[in-house]
Every structure is written in structure tokens, then in C-alpha cells.
Computed example of a mutant assay.
Amino acid sequence: MKKYIFSVLIALLSLPVAAQQQSQAKAVLDKTAEAFRKAGSVKISFTAKSISNGKVEGTESGTIQLKREKFLLKTSEMTTWFDGQTQWSYLSRNDEVNISSPTKDELQQINPYTFLYMYQKGFSYKLGSVSSFRGKAVTEVILTATDRKMDLSSLILYVAKDTYEPLYILLQQRGQSARSEITVTDYQPRQNYPDHLFAFDRKQYPNAEIVDLR
């Protein structure tokens, strides 16, 4: 009985600390999202790793151009456009374009920066212990999905303390040992990108096969 009462007291005493952690972590996310909004749009160069059971299964480099929820993602094998509703994915090896209307979970897998406008719902947050990354002072924020139906179970983010730019993102899928790690190698704010940049242009790929998956 005494042990039970002691455990309850410890739990109650830890509540204010947990609440403070949640508040501080959300403040970092709010400032990161605000910095993104003020930039108008950004271009990010990155290196992504797929890791399974502690081993690197694959590495890919590319760029992503962002404007609010819109994006243009380019890697060596694929180019993906998303205009906020429709997604086009061009596979260079097949000269094929797949058209779809992605779900929120699918967008999180393709564009990890969806956290910039989705984190306020469906996640709890806390601060981590990492304070530096590649020679820069950072704040580590750990986001955990509160909805068990979400494919994404957690996301770890390193944010630069001086600019609130995301420098590193780790994505953990639910029920899987594999994870994805994304390291930002260059971050270029830009005032604005034209909307047509985020839509597939048939004229640039006249011979590509169109596969409509909607």
C-alpha cells in the first residue's frame, strides 16, 4: 500500500515537469513553423538514409522546394510534384507518371516537412537531450503520434537554435524496425515560388506514360 501511494505521489509530482516539457517543445515547433511561413518558400538539399536493424539499407540525395503545403521533390530516380491536392510522381527509369490524391499519412512519408503545418493535431511533444549537430547548437524535439492508426509513430527533429531551421529529421514508422533519417545539407529561404512549379507539365515529358491512380 505504501509503495502504491509513493508511486502515485511520484506520478503527480512529475505532471508539472511533463506539462512544461510539452509547452517548451511546442514553442520550438511554433517558432520553426513561423520561420518557415516568413520565408515564403524554401529550397532544401538533403541526404536521406533508410536504416533497418541498425544497418544502412539505402542512401539517396536530393532537393525539395516548399511553399506552404505544396512541394517539388527531386531525387536521382524520381521527381514528385504536389500542388496541395494532386500528386504527380515521374519515374525516370520507366518514363512513367503516376497521378494520385495522397492521404495525410502518405504525404508524411513522401514529404517529412508536413510536420510544419500538421504537428498541432495528432502529436504529443517533448524536448530531447541532443544539444549539437554537425557543429551547430540545436534543440531536439521528439514528436509522438497520439493516434495509433497513423502510419508514422514518431518523429525526431533537430532545430537550429539561432535560425529555427530543421537540420535533421528521423521518421519511425509504426510497427517497423526500419526508420528514415534525413540530414539537411543546405537550406535556402526564398521570397516566393510560382504555383505552377508544383504541378506536372506534360510538355516537359511528352512521351511519358500517364497512370491515373485516383
Rank of each mutant, 00 (worst) to 15 (best):
R148G: 15
G135R: 07
L127I: 11
Y205E: 09
E106N: 14
E60M: 05
E181T: 10
G58Y: 07
I44T: 12
A39S: 15
L66D: 01
F82M: 04
T32W: 00
L127P: 04
R202W: 01
S153M: 14
S124V: 06
K3T: 15
W88D: 03
T80M: 14
W81I: 12
Y4G: 04
A137F: 01
S132T: 14
L143W: 10
S101D: 08
Y205C: 05
E57C: 04
K203P: 00
R93D: 14
F46K: 02
S50H: 11
F115C: 10
L152K: 12
L127Q: 09
T32C: 06
G40V: 10
D83Y: 09
A199M: 02
N94V: 03
Q21P: 00
Q87Y: 09
I182L: 13
R190D: 05
Q22S: 10
A35N: 15
V130R: 13
D201F: 06
Q204P: 03
D162G: 02
P189E: 09
H196V: 03
P194L: 06
E69V: 00
Q85W: 03
A19W: 02
I51R: 08
E57F: 04
K136Y: 01
G58V: 00
Y187M: 01
I5C: 08
K67V: 05
R68T: 04
T80V: 14
Y187S: 04
V28A: 02
M118S: 15
V17S: 01
S180P: 07
E106R: 12
Q109A: 04
D212E: 12
A35M: 13
Q109Y: 00
T163R: 08
L167E: 10
